[in-house]
Design a protein around this nucleic acid. Structure first.
Ligand SMILES: NC(=O)c1ccc[n+]([C@@H]2O[C@H](COP(=O)([O-])OP(=O)(O)OC[C@H]3O[C@@H](n4cnc5c(N)ncnc54)[C@H](O)[C@@H]3O)[C@@H](O)[C@H]2O)c1
Ligand SMILES: NC(=O)c1ccc[n+]([C@@H]2O[C@H](COP(=O)([O-])OP(=O)(O)OC[C@H]3O[C@@H](n4cnc5c(N)ncnc54)[C@H](O)[C@@H]3O)[C@@H](O)[C@H]2O)c1
Lengths: 260, 260
DNA sequence: CCGACTTTGTGCATACGTTCACAAGCGGTA
DNA sequence: TACCGCTTGTGAACGTATGCACAAAGTCGG
């Protein structure tokens, strides 16, 4: 790593009583860095990873920040900064080795280990998720399905048997589920969430349009399609408003310049 | 509106030659404000709206920022700031009138008008979306479905007939589609997107794991479940790293205090 | 009508994220 | 080896978002 402040890899022998203000840099910093990656950058790293995997399949071995940024739909400076959080694995004047980059991003994202997924609520959405081949191939095997409906339990969906929600604790423990996906009706979501948490699941992906309450140590991400659509709707409205402003501008509100 | 700088609701007659530095506030500002709402705030407004609608159904007529913030899972100061972008419709010492707030948020989000949705790609996910009742009830009627598979076209899904993708332009125009949802395999997504744009659709919600290229005036939002899971995975890994640091800390790296 | 109490709305400080711009570093070439 | 052109990696400037803390503005009981 280039512009590091201190000098050399100062071993952990640490000076005795440095009560001075500027804190010394330690081993902790190496770990600390992972924590220092902005959430927004993490989301983009996942996108870069997908693009890079595609590149690798097409036989591309090296890629410049400019190219990768184009393919990922971001500014190249941002891309380089994002990659700098991961470490410095590029070659100046050349670019990045695709394989190397893939493996380092995978390491940072914790994809060196598989994360088993459990889907709760095997209705419209749950069926789609269970049948989807895109998760296992990316390191997220769907290890268990749950529903409360007795007509569904026992029947396999996408090759995986559906368990009754009451068995959630034992099955999750047995299959080492680390991610729980909630696809139940909103009324049931909080209760399901609580059961997942009790079962030791610390990561939850929630499709139900409710705000889940969880302990601090549990990470929740939500996918709310109605919210997405409302954001789109907002932009439509905003655009209409701007058009209206332009009209007013054209008509000319006396003397008042809108954008000089 | 409370803390407004100027005085009274200065009508649009605009003072003659105020070339002074502090720019006068005009009609444009009212419109301007909509544009000034941070994207993050817009997403939260949609959540507040959902919570408020639920409250209204339960007969709640008034709510304080503290209560609403709790229900929406955010800090109350943030909530109040978000609402201040919409305008000042609360009553100090009392709180917000639920109905009033709902209607103002709806106005800002452009929900006073319906936004017809077209879903393209009626596979696993497309079926789930077409069958989902949550969209029409929130002002987003599903007006058309499209697929390339001749076996699917003509057959109704969720009460809506599936059209062939080749009819996309005429059908979208006829049904005044304003939001296009892409649920096709990734390989087809860019082509489908281009067709939607040609058909005049300016808002796109993309489920395919690809980065879409669109003209500036088109708004795209993506839902990428694998990315969501990878973000969760990152947090798991980060947590494991922190635990490792704590162990090192416990063992005691001589003299170096990690967090004093 | 007053004064105690509650809750909003926002100025300000801080933290976070993005973008610019350029020195540092590398491969290739003479 | 010395130079050149290209691309990375990162300080620093900027812009945006968050959260605190408190004055302003309202309600309500007496
Ligand atoms: N279908 C979509 O396209 C879509 C889109 C956006 C959001 N959502 C949300 O996703 C969730 C699921 O949607 P859906 O269309 O699949 O609903 P659905 O009604 O088709 O399926 C829900 C399933 O959950 C099961 N269930 C109910 N209570 C349960 C409990 N306590 N424990 C376990 N399982 C339980 C039901 O038996 C049913 O099989 C809903 O919250 C919905 O709002 C769905
Ligand atoms: N199913 C899921 O749970 C899930 C989860 C995450 C992401 N996705 C993504 O969503 C998309 C759809 O997933 P799916 O599981 O429904 O796939 P699917 O294969 O079940 O369905 C795809 C549908 O698109 C149609 N199609 C193909 N090319 C088309 C074209 N050019 N024009 C119109 N229609 C066309 C096909 O006929 C098919 O009906 C994929 O990109 C997938 O990666 C799905």
């Amino acid at each position: 790593m280039a512009g590091r402040r201190g000098e050399g890899d100062e071993v952990v022998t640490a000076s005795p009583k440095k009560t001075a203000e500027p804190p010394a840099e330690t081993v902790a910093d190496v770990r600390e860095r992972a924590r220092a990656i902005p959430e927004a950058a993490v989301a983009r790293l996942a996108v870069y990873l997908r693009v890079l995997s595609g590149m690798a399949e097409q036989g591309v071995t090296t890629i410049s920040s400019e190219e990768l940024a184009g393919a990922a739909g971001v500014n190249s400076a941002k891309l380089r900064k994002d990659l700098s959080y991961v470490g410095s694995y590029g070659t100046r004047g050349v670019g990045y080795d695709v394989e190397v980059l893939v493996s380092h991003i995978e390491r940072i994202l914790g994809l060196t280990r598989k994360h088993s997924v459990a889907v709760v609520g095997i209705g419209n959405l749950g069926h789609a998720l269970a049948n989807y081949g895109g998760f296992p191939s990316r390191g997220f095997p769907v290890a268990a399905l749950f529903d409360i409906d007795p007509d569904l339990t026992g029947v396999p969906v996408g090759g995986i048997p559906v368990h009754h929600i009451d068995d959630i604790t034992s099955v999750c423990a047995e299959r080492e589920v680390s991610i729980g996906v909630i696809a139940t009706p909103p009324q049931a979501a909080q209760a399901v969430c609580d059961r997942l948490v009790s079962a030791g699941v610390q990561c939850i992906l929630n499709f139900a349009p409710v705000v889940l309450q969880v302990p601090d140590y549990v990470e929740v991400r939500k996918v709310d399609l109605a919210v997405e659509m409302q954001i789109l709707s907002f932009h439509v409205a905003r655009r209409a408003d701007e058009a209206a402003v332009d009209v007013v501008n054209g008509v000319g509100v006396d003397g008042v310049v809108i954008r000089p």
